[in-house]
Design a binder for these strands. Structure first.
Lengths: 205, 205
DNA sequence: TCTTTAATTGGTCAAATGATCAACGACGGG
DNA sequence: CCCGTCGTTGATCATTTGACCAATTAAAGA
């Protein structure tokens, strides 16, 4: 019992992959909080390792940030969303709501939103690539579906979909970037937004 | 003619207020571009002055950034918007469109959006204060107006207005934060968004 | 248990950065 | 024309920060 060093003891000798994972985890959390200009020393301190060890696993801070970006974006884009969106056996409204419920669940995280925004400010090409992907793989099919269901004289454009999308994303921005109070459950708000949108193109529920 | 030093010559002896203005102007442009972590040296170089001179006018970098925030936000909020919004002699739709045309004109600038977003990421209280102001002075009256015009069984909530607002702001975010292509004229998109919104609460044009 | 491997660390360097100050010199007043 | 004020500058300091390396030591294999 006198041997109380168990908790605060020196941490040593992790398998390289495990250590790398741990570093990236800590880096995601750290850079999300303090911004991409955070220092390697503070990050190392928070990760419970020495600063020098970072350079055992990453050649430079930029390389570490690359790993952070990869971690944050990887698998946040579910491959079944395109199929969900275009599955005409289900009602359109239900498809959209299911999609945005899952999308919000994946995107509305402190780490994701803040790192994504910081990357945008830093001029990383990542954001453009990601949002091009969102447009091509998610919004474009969604546009097709809505056009298919809409009256010929009330056809939406891509910009209208960006407007719907942005109104929803803005919830996350208010919460995680501006630290403003937002509803705990975002789905009712999203639901009403989607309903207004569909009604605007004369699509019944 | 041999005296060609006029353009590249040493700049000296400006009146203190003029110099201060010039520094703040340059700082707004500089920090919007490179982020709040930009250096005083680079800023000074861009402003065509020495780095030491910055500290003649501002006690610290933080103090300079305060001046930048003040400059960017000051008078971007027109005092006649509340009156415009609540002027029931004009049709509601027209009021909203006029307001958002002016609001977008004031807000959709590279400097404003980027510095505002960077301040949010940096945890500045400024964003919360500004958006509280937007909610209290603009969106709350707007909510009242729409509720007044809406059917009793289809009353919007504040979150619905944030949704409308966010969808519009997202246009500026896409353009200036993510550097994505957006329509040159945003008003048609805003117009359709507002029309969908009003229709969603059963308000005719 | 001993040896070997390599994960980890303390120490250190060079460059960058916020901040300071004595000295210079442009401009207005006498 | 000279002088004094004060806006401006070059030099410099103390830290911070990204990056590196030789020495240390925990853990696996024989």
């Amino acid at each position: 019992m006198a041997d109380g060093m168990a908790l605060t003891a020196r941490r040593k000798r992790l398998a390289p992959e495990a250590r790398r994972e741990q570093i990236v985890d800590a880096a995601v959390c750290y850079f999300a909080e303090v911004g991409l200009a955070g220092t390697t020393r503070d990050l190392a301190k928070r990760a419970g390792i020495t600063q020098a060890l970072l350079y055992q696993y990453f050649g430079s801070k930029a390389e570490l940030l690359e790993a952070v970006f990869a971690r944050v974006y990887l698998d946040r884009m579910s491959p079944h969303w395109p199929g969900l969106i275009t599955d005409r056996r289900r009602p359109l409204r239900e498809r959209i709501l299911t999609f945005y419920a899952e999308y919000a669940g994946a995107i509305f995280s402190y780490e994701w939103l803040r790192i994504f925004m910081a990357a945008g400010l830093a001029g990383e090409a990542l954001n453009r690539r990601y949002l091009d992907h969102v447009r091509d793989v998610l919004l474009a099919p969604l546009l097709d579906e809505i056009r298919f269901a809409a009256r010929p004289d009330a056809q939406p454009e891509m910009e209208d979909l960006w407007n719907l999308h942005g109104g929803i994303i803005y919830l996350g921005i208010r919460r995680h970037i501006y630290h403003l109070p937002t509803p705990d459950d975002v789905m009712p708000v999203i639901e009403r937004a989607v309903d207004r949108f569909l009604a605007g193109f004369a699509i019944g529920q």
